[in-house]
């Protein structure tokens, strides 16, 4: 699958240094360091409960953290005022694991909602055009009047992505985009992630435990084990049978499990 090339000499758009996060007695993230450049598709791989989702929720200020520095577009997320944080969030799209579509609204209303709530100056024609454009981007134009409950898992994921695209984000955060989907639908979502990056020129973080998704969408892969990044690099480097399998039993078992699946 075709992926966009990344220019390494650019300033990182996301920078995480010495990040620690715990819930009660449990340390979830321990000394996380990560830099992501513009246009990059960074995949964070790890087992369920390893703190992957916590990491991207920290990036948009949904969760606080204990220690460290988290910068997005050069701004420290935890030091932003409510207004500045909202301005930052408008530049970030967040696709939730369960799509998080508003059950009481149909697809059109789901897509219109973030736009009309944030941009008071847009007229009805512009809203309609924007809705049609994002629906076309995710290939679900005919579902415009359906309720979320009537959509399949894959369609809900697509509409969830469309809802984030309507605000034209510069960063896309995908939380388990292929979880609970069959291989064919997963393949379509992987393609959509790459298409979105090309069409909207976004920088992405993809949280997943699906190796196929990681391989097809990621320009780099970060392997999260026990709250720490065990390996960061290109997919083939992280899962190089000559090194990492020998070094780390966790990576090997993760790879073997996905291979069997």
């Amino acid at each position: 699958m075709e992926k966009q090339e990344v220019k390494k000499d650019q300033e990182p758009i996301i920078s995480i240094k010495g990040l620690y996060k715990s819930f009660g007695d449990k340390d979830v993230l321990k000394d996380i360091n990560l830099e992501i450049s513009k246009g990059e598709n960074m995949v964070v791989l790890g087992r369920s409960g390893s703190g992957k989702s916590v990491l991207i929720k920290i990036l948009v200020g949904l969760l606080s953290f204990d220690k460290g520095t988290v910068k997005v577009f050069g701004k420290e997320v935890d030091k932003l005022s409510g207004k500045d944080l909202d301005a930052l969030r408008l530049r970030i799209g967040f696709s939730f694991q369960n799509s998080a579509l508003y059950d009481s609204m149909n697809v059109r209303q789901n897509l219109e909602f973030p736009l009309t709530m944030n941009k008071k100056d847009v007229n009805k024609g512009e809203v309609k055009k924007a809705v049609e454009e994002v629906l076309e981007a995710v290939g679900l134009k005919e579902k415009i009047n359906e309720m979320p409950g009537d959509l399949s898992g894959g369609q809900r994921k697509r509409i969830g992505i469309a809802r984030t695209l309507i605000l034209k984000p510069e960063i896309m955060l995908y939380d388990e985009p292929t979880s609970g989907l069959d291989p064919i639908t997963s393949e379509e979502i992987n393609k959509l992630i790459n298409d979105v990056q090309k069409k909207y020129n976004t920088t992405s973080i993809i949280i997943t435990h699906d190796l196929t998704c990681a391989k097809e969408t990621g320009s780099r892969v970060a392997m999260l084990l026990d709250g720490k990044f065990e390996k960061i690099g290109k997919f083939d480097e992280v899962f190089d049978p000559k090194s990492s399998h020998k070094d780390n039993k966790e990576i090997k078992s993760f790879f073997d499990y996905n291979f069997i699946q």
Binding site: L62, R89, A100, L101, N118, R163, L167
Partner: peptide
């Protein structure tokens, strides 16, 4: 869904 509202500012 509440988180989704929050991240949409």
């Amino acid at each position: 869904q509440i988180d989704a509202m929050e991240v949409s500012a």
